[in-house]
Every structure is written in C-alpha cells, then in structure tokens.
Simulated assay, not measured.
Amino acid sequence: MSLRTLMLICALALPAWAHAAAPKPLYRDPVMDGAADVSIVFDKGRREWVMFYTNRRATQKDPDPADVAWVHATPIGMATSKDGLAWRYGGLAKFPAQCTGQTLWAPELYQEGGVYHMWLTVVPGVFHRWGEPGATARIVHLTSKDLKAWACGDTPDLGSDRVIDASVAKVGDRYRLWYKDERRGSRIVAVESPDLVHWRPLGDGPVVDMAAEGPKVFRFKDRWWMVADAWKGLIVLRSDDAKTWTLQESRLLEQPGRQPTDTAKGQHPDVVVNGGRAFLYYFVHQSNEPQAKADPYYGQRTVIQVAEIKEDGGVLSVDREAPVEQGLVAPK
C-alpha cells in the first residue's frame, strides 16, 4: 500500500468536523442581514445545535440616519447546526402574543430536566431614539419541550421598567439571573431563585460599577466567568462563587479583526462550554467593510463570528484571527 493511499484512508476515517473550519462570517441572516445577540442550545430531540438571535431589520433605510426603528419590530431568528461551525437558516421563532410583543431582543436559553427555558427581552412598540421617553422593556420567561412551541411563563419582578439582556446559570442548588438595568445607569445586577419563578435580589449593588449590556455567565476551568459588552470590547469578570466578581484588566475583541466581515469590535456574546473548551459567539457590525463606503446604511448589518476562549493564570483571551477547526461535540 502506497503512502498516498494510506493517507487517503486515514483522512476518510476522520469525522467530518475534523476538516471543517468556521467560516467568516460564521453566520449571517439571509433575510434582513442583522443577526445579533445569539444564544445557543443543544436540541436533544433532533440532535443538533440551535441558535436563537435578535433579527434586526438591518436592510431598512430610514430617511433619518439617527432613527433606530430598524432595531425595533425585531423577531427572533433561528439557525441550526450539527457542529457549531456550519449553520443553516431555520426561520423565525413563534411565541404567544399575550406575553411577548412587537419588539423582541436578546433570547437567553437554558435547558434542564427535558424543559427548555427562554428569557426574552420584550419592548412594547417601536421607538426612534435610544432612551426615548415612554420606552420600557421587560424580561419574560417562556418554556418549551421542543424549541418550537413555547408557553408563557412568568414576568420576573426585577424592580425596574427598563430591564434587558438576561443571562441565567445554576449555582449550587439555586438559579441566578443577571441583566442590564437601564434605570440604574445601565449597570448589570443579579437576582436569585430556588425554582426559576420566585426571584430576589442578589446583593445590594451592581456586579461591577460600569455600564455594560449582554452579560453571559458560564463555568470554565474551575471558575465562574462573566463576559459583557461595554461597547469598547467585551469586559471579563471572574468569580469563585458567582456573586463577588473581579474585573479583568484586558478586554476581549476590543481591537478590530483583519479578516473580512470581522473588522469591528466584538459585541453581545454567548459562550458555549463544550468538551473542556469554550467558544465565544459574538456579533460584528459591518461599518468597516468595503460596501459601507458606497452605502452609509451598510454598517447597520451585523454578522455572527466565533472564536475559542483560552485561559491562562486566571485571565481569558481570544485570538479572533485563529481558525476554529474543531466544532461542538453533541452531548450524550
């Protein structure tokens, strides 16, 4: 048997993901080109990964460039993947009208005991300026057995009428929910629950005394971590108890990447810890792409990218230029 034949046989024996590398962009919405704020969960029934995302109306061109109506009236898009690297569009998620609304943002997925939970930001209507008088936001809880049909749960009382961007994790025998409270200077605060229904404040103050949004809390390398969007890269906090946090000096994805479609700061992340590795899924505005020179609205478009998180001495880092060549492994 020749060496070439042996190499071919070995190559064919490898799993498909061994040859795949995450494309750039990893994913873009084929309808409105405004995928952002992703949350990824494994569908045990269909044996595939499902990405839920804010489906911004990025191709809309309002006469007033300062008008942010295109970030409102947003549905939640879906995409599916066998390995977390190759994604295909899955249409729009459908939710009960009685507990949601016209503008939906930032889905957060959590699975336990055969039930999928989603915490979804709901804005009642379409607004044209950030912080517009009368604008409110709430976080609603929904449940599903199949990630298709959703039932209304509760609307947690979070002590504010402008709360967005939930992140949920189980710490010991209790659940914790972190979110951005725009009435408190856009600080991230937390509540705790024994049952995912009844919540009480966790501590008296914010997680960190700085404005940020899109928190994501996860367990990795024997520590709790939080990454959040500070609009100048992603801040990183670490903790031993998921209650008291230490801010990392360096940020992730603060500097633009060099590869096409990844040439702006990274924003509003999700993190999937899988097989002892951690993958950071983030969105990137297309303002620095060549198309934006001819189209002033092109920067509204956003795409999803992925990079692997590395930990060294209690510090997280990400190399957005490094290819992600091994994807997510399906849980047993």
Rank of each mutant, 00 (worst) to 15 (best):
H72D: 11
R138P: 12
M78I: 13
L147W: 01
W231F: 13
V284D: 01
W70T: 01
V318H: 06
P260L: 09
L8I: 10
D209G: 07
R320V: 03
M226K: 03
K232D: 14
E213R: 10
T244E: 00
A21K: 12
D222V: 10
L177C: 04
I235N: 06
T246R: 13
T74D: 12
E325I: 11
A86G: 09
P290Q: 08
K310M: 06
R238N: 12
P156L: 06
L234V: 09
Q255K: 15
P156T: 08
D270A: 12
P290R: 06
G233C: 04
D195H: 05
W105E: 03
P75Y: 00
R47W: 02
I304K: 04
V71E: 15
P323H: 07
L120I: 06
K94T: 12
I9C: 08
Y282C: 03
V50E: 07
V122W: 08
A137K: 00
A66E: 15
M210E: 13
A106T: 08
V41F: 03
A228E: 00
P201C: 05
G153L: 04
H72P: 00
V207Q: 01
K216I: 11
E48F: 09
R301Y: 07
L6P: 04
L8G: 06
A97P: 01
W87H: 05
V123T: 12
A11T: 11
W225H: 07
L237N: 06
G45R: 12
R219S: 13
L316Q: 02
D157W: 13
V123R: 02
A166K: 01
D29Y: 08
G299W: 01
F279P: 06
G214L: 05
V140I: 14
Y53T: 01
T143Q: 06
R183L: 13
S144N: 07
E48D: 12
K265R: 13
G314S: 02
W49T: 04
M78V: 11
R88V: 15
F42K: 04
F283V: 07
L142M: 11
A79I: 08
L253I: 06
A93Q: 04
L3N: 02
P65K: 00
A322Q: 12
R238M: 11
K148Q: 15
T54D: 03
W224C: 06
S317R: 03
K61M: 14
V38H: 04
V207H: 06
D67T: 01
W49M: 08
E289L: 07
D157V: 12
R57F: 08
I309E: 01
P194C: 10
T155F: 12
A35Q: 02
I40K: 00
A166D: 02
Y298K: 02
L280N: 01
V71I: 15
L280V: 06
R223I: 00
I139T: 03
V208Y: 15
D157E: 15
V271K: 03
G125C: 08
E132C: 13
W49F: 15
G113E: 09
Q102D: 13
H19K: 13
R277N: 02
W130Q: 07
Y53Q: 00
Q300G: 01
Q255E: 15
A97Q: 11
A58M: 08
A36H: 06
S186N: 14
A230E: 14
D29G: 05
L12G: 00
K94A: 12
D240S: 14
P206G: 08
Y282A: 01
L142K: 04
R200I: 07
